[in-house]
């Protein structure tokens, strides 16, 4: 797993040393606005996400962290650069194929859950599997098992409005994992919760992703939330400014600081992308 912005800095870990990344971003740039007023939200980001890794993306408002999440998830097509998942460049896929990929390979947990208010907890959780063509009966059995594991026994028939914030987020986690994703994207998943509930939900999210073998990419502005992840990248002005690797014994500690100008790397110079260096 690597985050790098410079040819001068070798990958933190050679590609052969670990499993191939589940997501690999190279030279990501994304601009908003038109020619008269352009804002560069991503300015040359390179990033690998390993299978089952938990990664926090931090930074001040407007630094590009949510844009990075949206580009990695195939919601936004980058202005330039590539995101590789299972050998496919997301930016080269059609809109419908990216949508299918989000349904089958990715899961999402939003700040406010974004559950369908009319559906019960169980029905919300089975929706991705049903959209993928699974029969209702089998999707229900699987989702019910996830809900139970997340501590929601006896609440399957409740609507989101009848659940607490923490319970609703657990339903959102069950929904995200119900489609058996390889990556779960979480955008400020505890932003709407009190601290105690937030920590509980975070623990559930991290454990559930690990159990499911899914990588977790989580955007947050809260260092205590980020510290629950194995790795944290700090963004500034659309670039990865620093990254930290969690030391289980001592908590988070910086393992590499990237030079501010180091984003100007040509993607071709990067090795270690998905599948042993392919782009």
């Amino acid at each position: 797993m690597t985050a790098q912005n410079s040819p001068a800095h070798p990958p933190l870990r050679p590609p052969t040393a670990g499993p191939a990344p589940v997501l690999a971003a190279r030279g990501l740039q994304h601009a908003y606005g038109d020619r008269s007023a352009t804002t560069l939200a991503l300015d040359g980001v390179d990033l690998d996400v390993a299978p089952a890794e938990s990664l926090a993306v931090m930074g001040p408002s407007g630094c590009g962290k949510t844009t990075l999440l949206h580009v990695l998830a195939g919601i936004l097509r980058p202005t330039s650069g590539s995101v590789l998942h299972a050998g496919s460049d997301l930016s080269a896929l059609s809109e419908s194929r990216r949508t299918r990929l989000r349904r089958t390979a990715f899961g999402f947990v939003f700040q406010d859950g974004r559950l369908l208010p009319e559906l019960t907890a169980l029905e919300n959780a089975i929706l991705p599997r049903m959209l993928g063509g699974a029969p209702r009966r089998s999707a229900s059995a699987e989702a019910a098992s996830w809900l139970d594991r997340l501590g929601l026994q006896g609440l399957h028939d409740r609507r989101p409005g009848q659940l607490s914030g923490g319970q609703a987020q657990r339903v959102a986690i069950a929904r995200a994992l119900g489609g058996r994703p390889s990556v779960v994207f979480a955008d400020e998943p505890t932003g709407a919760l009190d601290q105690a509930t937030g920590h509980s939900v975070l623990a559930v999210l991290a454990d559930a992703c690990r159990d499911a073998g899914a990588a977790l990419v989580m955007v947050t502005h809260d260092p205590s939330v980020a510290s629950t992840c194995e790795r944290t990248i700090a963004m500034r002005d659309g670039r990865i400014a620093r990254q930290f690797q969690r030391d289980p014994a001592q908590g988070a500690a910086p393992t590499q600081q990237v030079r501010p100008d180091s984003h100007q790397v040509h993607p071709d110079s990067q090795q270690g992308a998905v599948g042993g260096g392919r782009r």
Binding site: A73, I75, S96, T99, R100, L101, R102, R103, T104, F106, G107, F108, F110, R114, L116, L127, P128, L131, R175, G179
Partner: peptide, 16 residues
């Protein structure tokens, strides 16, 4: 609109 948007982000095709 907001519900449609989040469903689509989570992989629901527009046709669904």
């Amino acid at each position: 609109g907001r519900v449609y948007r989040s469903q689509h982000v989570a992989g629901a095709p527009v046709v669904a």
